[in-house]
Amino acid sequence: MQNILILGCGNIAGLNESKKSSSTFSHAKAISKNSFFNLKYCYDINKKKLLKFKSKWRVKNGYSNFNDVLKKKLDIDIVIITSPTHTHYELLKKSFKLNPKIIICEKPMCLNLKHGLEIAKKIPKRTKLFINYQRRLSNSYIELKKIISKEKYGKLRSISSTYNKGLFNNGSHLLDIFNYLLVRPSFEIAARPINDYKSNDLSYPFFLKKNAISISVNVANARDYYFFNLQFVFQKKIIEITENEKKINYFTPIKTRTYKNFTNVKMEKTKKNNDQFDMGLVYKHLKIFIKNNKHSFLTDIKEEIKNLTILEKITNN
């Protein structure tokens, strides 16, 4: 059993998730469903949150002062950082002093490339650092990677996508998906952002490229509605991940009788996409890594540096 310390007792940690619902959106709930892991310690500077979280998930030990965590010499195998993004940089440096086997930090790892490169240099030899972009663990994206690499539907021609609620908050998920599927696409250009989420996290339209594959990213305004969709255009198929990733639509080319030598597309099938927010997948793949020392599909520090590099180019464009 792997003993876990959670740093940050807010929503993504599990503060407000129902223990009775069938969904698993938080770390604490995912841990509670996997007997390989033990949520033994928690930390938050907000004592009210700390006590509520500690009681709800029956965590034996809670701390509001990180010095106490360091002094106690706790039996920690894994550190999970679920605090706000602006705190990640300092908490990562503090976590290194605990010398855990694994650290999982919520995305993005930090707010600029300089801090990211500094963190990369300071990771203890014993410690493996992963960044939590759980969307890439969804079966739909794993299958897409196979389709692209094997050219199941011919060559991938282009990708178009739309997001909102901030480049760092939500757009970073897209960057990680593109890096996972295509391996380091290059930044081309960004357009004027909109403030639809927070003044310090604007939503930028931008354009990437990987060889002959064009990748366009548009923005919707989160004040109107939440939106996160993707479309992959292949030679012989179009795949849409739509309705905020709840459905996957497949379109296939057909010859039309109306016009000679004209090919149209029609809907072939639709299937549900149910696991894109399943935090349980993180711990499934983490267990695989621990037992087999196999990287699996988790985002490592090298991949996150790629993400941070493009994030910085977008905001500095």
Rank of each mutant, 00 (worst) to 15 (best):
E303R: 05
I310V: 10
I314T: 09
F207R: 11
M279H: 15
K255F: 09
P100T: 03
K56L: 11
A191Y: 15
S296C: 13
T256D: 10
I104R: 04
V233H: 13
K71S: 15
D224V: 13
I254R: 14
N67R: 07
K54L: 00
Y43I: 01
P84L: 14
F251K: 13
L129H: 00
L208Y: 00
K302E: 14
I215W: 03
K73H: 12
I104V: 10
N261K: 12
N179H: 14
I305D: 00
Y153T: 06
N11K: 12
K247T: 03
K302A: 14
N244F: 03
L174D: 05
D278L: 05
L91I: 12
I215F: 02
S26M: 03
S95D: 00
I78S: 08
I248P: 02
L144A: 06
K29L: 14
F168L: 11
F228A: 01
I104N: 03
L156V: 02
F206D: 04
H285I: 09
N65T: 03
K48P: 01
I239R: 12
I290R: 04
T127K: 05
P193C: 05
P185D: 10
R135V: 01
D278I: 06
L208W: 02
Y141F: 15
N218G: 11
H115V: 03
K128S: 11
D275T: 09
Y41W: 12
L230H: 05
N195H: 06
L92H: 01
S64D: 06
S199Q: 05
I290P: 06
